[in-house]
Amino acid sequence: MIVFVRFNSSHGFPVEVDSDTSIFQLKEVVAKRQGVPADQLRVIFAGKELRNDWTVQNCDLDQQSIVHIVQRPWRKGQEMNATGGDDPRNAAGGCEREPQSLTRVDLSSSVLPGDSVGLAVILHTDSRKDSPPAGSPAGRSIYNSFYVYCKGPCQRVQPGKLRVQCSTCRQATLTLTQGPSCWDDVLIPNRMSGECQSPHCPGTSAEFFFKCGAHPTSDKETSVALHLIATNSRNITCITCTDVRSPVLVFQCNSRHVICLDCFHLYCVTRLNDRQFVHDPQLGYSLPCVAGCPNSLIKELHHFRILGEEQYNRYQQYGAEECVLQMGGVLCPRPGCGAGLLPEPDQRKVTCEGGNGLGCGFAFCRECKEAYHEGECSAVFEASGTTTQAYRVDERAAEQARWEAASKETIKKTTKPCPRCHVPVEKNGGCMHMKCPQPQCRLEWCWNCGCEWNRVCMGDHWFDV
């Protein structure tokens, strides 16, 4: 396979590697080409510095992935760790964990309700045991953590790749202090920090972006993250068709209702045909949960890209028209025109101005929308079919299609509260000796007794199943 190397943020060049090629071997190839010592090179990928003893497969490097290699003399205490030698983080029983690669970060837990604080980093599902597709590297999971809308060759929703760059020099040479644990960490600028490894760059702020994971991409090709779309790892039924499908869209209502993408497309087109989208002054033209839940309008309007190009163009047109109407304007009634106009409040005669090729020149009556006339309008008909009709959803289907309910059931079956801080902690095999993952707590306690870890627990039921 081919990976592209950008040395000291210059133009990239291809390097041929195998899945079992080590990072140090990659350094040696680059060092020979650039005429520099291999031990002064640092390989940066997806916000993480890659260790010498890791392989291309370990690092989730795919065909035509772009890695950054910078030349920086080692500072005291760094060289041993980078070589894969006596790194205290690798000691058996050590409590410190390697910062998780962005290629394996899962933010789907952050669609849980606000009262489930902490689960994004504490609760991990076991539903990723799908067998890898044919042709994928051994052991590589097909679980997708992110979804994007690819405006490039795909023109559809695709699995996405999370990447990070330095907000100062805009190069992907920043190593994160810690990985993101929720969508806010990724979507809110300057929320996460790190250290830029580019020479002479003092940058410390992280800037995240997404790429389409279905095809090789260049540095400049980015895609918009659709953070309401998630892999259906909890096997929730769709609120409309009641099938279990994946991926799904999880509405931001209190129940976190789930809808499959085909039904979401149908829901949007139906509402669009009836012009029953909601115009929100802050958000724009949007839709609420299909069950009509309060405070559930979709905030990231790129989710409506699921409509496809033709329907999305209609959505944008109707949204612009609705904006004009909300501002007190009118639409030209001549067939084939429909231009938005903003006449004076007491102006009865409205002319669709033909300047700049935008208007048709038609003069019409503001009251009856017919060709302009003197005197009273002959008839004014009330528009028919403008009443909002509820999208029919079966109550039982709505009850079963809740992301929140599956989460709470998982928590109930696989977790116990920490005796000190009461945060839910998952036990997935292993011994009875637990350690609270909350940095402010870190209590060592017994899963069996529910009390602080002691010699009695150690001698009596340390390794009970």
Results as ranks from 00 to 15, higher is better:
P281R: 07
T410E: 13
C368G: 02
P335A: 10
G375A: 08
T415Q: 09
G308R: 03
R245G: 04
C263H: 00
H124M: 07
P153F: 08
C59Y: 04
K129F: 09
H215W: 00
A138H: 09
A134G: 11
A383L: 10
G328K: 06
G329P: 03
C289P: 01
E322D: 06
N190P: 01
E370P: 02
F463R: 01
G429T: 15
Q317L: 08
G135F: 10
I23T: 01
T217W: 08
F45C: 11
C263W: 00
I188S: 12
L261S: 03
A138F: 12
N313P: 07
C154H: 00
L266P: 03
Q438P: 01
A401L: 02
N448M: 04
P159S: 06
C431G: 10
V393C: 08
C418P: 00
D87W: 13
R89V: 13
V456A: 15
G179F: 05
A371T: 10
S109Y: 05
V456E: 15
N90T: 12
Y312G: 03
S181W: 03
V330L: 10
A206M: 03
P99Q: 14
T21K: 04
G213K: 07
R163K: 11
S131F: 10
H433E: 05
T415L: 08
F4K: 13
A172F: 07
E221L: 07
E16T: 07
C169W: 00
V56Y: 02
T204V: 08
K416R: 07
P99H: 13
V224I: 14
P439W: 05
E322L: 04
D219Y: 07
C337I: 03
P73A: 08
K211D: 14
K369C: 07
D184M: 07
R256I: 00
G94P: 07
L41I: 03
D280I: 13
D262A: 04
W74G: 12
S127H: 11
S205G: 09
S378N: 15
E404W: 06
R234H: 08
Q63V: 06
S136C: 10
L331K: 04
F364G: 03
C449A: 02
H422G: 09
Q389W: 08
D126Q: 09
V465D: 15
I23W: 00
S145L: 04
R402M: 10
V70L: 05
Y147K: 02
A91K: 09
L107F: 12
G329R: 03
L341P: 03
G85I: 12
L266C: 10
V244M: 05
H373I: 02
R33D: 04
N52M: 02
Q64M: 12
C431Y: 07
C289R: 00
G85F: 13
T83A: 12
Q63R: 08
S136G: 14
R271K: 15
T103H: 12
S198V: 08
I236F: 03
A339I: 13
T168Q: 08
L123M: 13
R348C: 06
T410Q: 09
L272W: 00
F264V: 02
Y315C: 08
L176S: 03
D60C: 09
V17S: 01
F45V: 14
V43K: 00
R455W: 04
Y372R: 03
N58H: 12
F24C: 08
T217H: 11
Q438V: 04
D86G: 12
C289L: 02
R33E: 05
P343W: 04
C332G: 03
F304S: 01
G329I: 03
C457M: 01
N235S: 13
P153K: 10
A397C: 11
N90W: 09
L119T: 15
V15R: 01
E300M: 05
V148N: 01
I69H: 01
D394I: 05
E353Q: 07
S407L: 08
A206T: 03
V248I: 09
L41K: 00
Q158K: 09
H279W: 10
H279P: 09
T125E: 14
V465Q: 15
D262Y: 04
V5N: 03
T177D: 15
C337A: 03
A120K: 15
K412W: 10
P73Q: 11
V269C: 05
Q71L: 05
H215P: 02
T175C: 13
Q63L: 04
M432E: 03
C154D: 00
R128P: 13
I188K: 11
K412N: 13
N232K: 00
C289W: 00
E207A: 07
N448K: 06
S378T: 11
W462K: 00
H303V: 09
G139Q: 12
T242M: 14
A138Q: 13
L358F: 13
I122K: 15
D262C: 03
E79P: 12
T83H: 10
V380A: 08
W453C: 01
P73Y: 07
H215I: 00
V105R: 13
C166G: 02
V250M: 09
R314D: 02
D53R: 04
C212S: 01
R442L: 06
G203K: 03
E221Y: 08
H257F: 01
R455S: 15
S286C: 02
V3G: 02
L112N: 13
S65Q: 05
Q438L: 05
L26T: 01
R305Q: 11
G152S: 14
I142L: 11
N190H: 12
V393Q: 06
A397S: 12
L112F: 11
S110W: 04
E221F: 07
W445A: 02
L266I: 15
S223T: 11
R334G: 06
D185M: 02
V224Y: 14
C451V: 15
T103M: 09
G194H: 04
C253E: 01
N428V: 15
L297D: 04
C368N: 03
R420C: 11
F304I: 02
G292E: 07
W447E: 09
M458K: 15
I298N: 00
C441N: 01
E395S: 09
L261C: 05
C352K: 02
S110C: 09
A91H: 10
L331I: 07
L266G: 05
T175F: 08
L226E: 01
M80I: 13
Q311L: 04
W447K: 03
S22H: 09
E444G: 06
S141Q: 11
Y149H: 05
D39S: 08
G179P: 14
H373R: 02
M458Q: 15
I239G: 02
R305N: 08
I306G: 03
P133C: 10
L176A: 03
A138G: 11
N313A: 10
G459S: 15
S246F: 02
V250N: 02
T386R: 14
R51K: 14
T351Q: 07
V56W: 04
P216Q: 09
T222M: 08
T125F: 04
S19F: 06
F463M: 04
A225D: 02
L228Y: 11
Q78V: 14
V15H: 01
N428L: 13
V380P: 09
P113R: 09
V258N: 02
L102H: 11
R455F: 15
A214G: 11
C263P: 01
D87I: 12
R89Y: 13
Q40S: 12
P437W: 06
G77K: 08
E382K: 14
S378A: 08
H279S: 08
N356W: 05
P439G: 06
R6M: 06
N232P: 01
C182S: 12
L272K: 00
T388M: 14
C212L: 01
R170M: 08
N235W: 05
G47T: 01
R156E: 10
L297K: 03
G430N: 15
S205V: 15
E452T: 15
E409I: 09
G385F: 08
Q400S: 15
P437V: 04
Q165E: 09
V36S: 02
E16I: 05
M80L: 14
G375C: 04
V244N: 05
V456C: 15
I259S: 03
A379H: 08
A291T: 05
A82M: 13
Q34Y: 13
T231N: 14
H68V: 03
E426R: 07
G359P: 07
E426A: 12
P424F: 08
T270Q: 05
F146H: 03
I236S: 06
S141M: 10
G203W: 00
A390Q: 14
A379M: 11
C337D: 03
E49R: 00
L112C: 13
C154T: 01
A390Y: 12
Q25W: 05
T270A: 05
A172R: 09
K369W: 06
I44Q: 02
L228W: 04
C449E: 03
E404R: 08
V423F: 11
L301N: 09
I236Q: 04
E195I: 12
E426T: 14
Y318F: 06
C332D: 03
K32N: 11
